[in-house]
């Protein structure tokens, strides 16, 4: 029988605690270091943080 190994899903079998969580797949992980997407997120996060800083002073 041919195995279908999905590397990102292997940790589900480490123990019961990990089996009951959500683990990001390949796409979600790649977006975390995708330069274009992360630049966009950088701008958005900064705007959000500036608003929170502004509300706190």
């Amino acid at each position: 029988m041919e195995k279908k190994v999905v590397h990102e899903e292997l940790n589900f079998q480490r123990d019961d605690k990990m089996n009951l969580t959500m683990i990001p797949g390949k796409f979600a992980r790649s977006m975390r270091t995708c330069l274009i997407w992360q630049f966009i997120r950088f701008v958005i996060i900064n705007i959000k943080m500036i608003i929170v800083v502004g509300k706190s002073h």
Binding site: R32, T33, C34, L35, Q38, I45, N46, M49, I51, V52
Partner: peptide
């Protein structure tokens, strides 16, 4: 609206 979190390279840059 002002409580959020995400993981990524952007956070590292910040």
């Amino acid at each position: 609206d002002y409580t959020f979190g995400e993981i990524g390279l952007a956070g590292h840059w910040i």
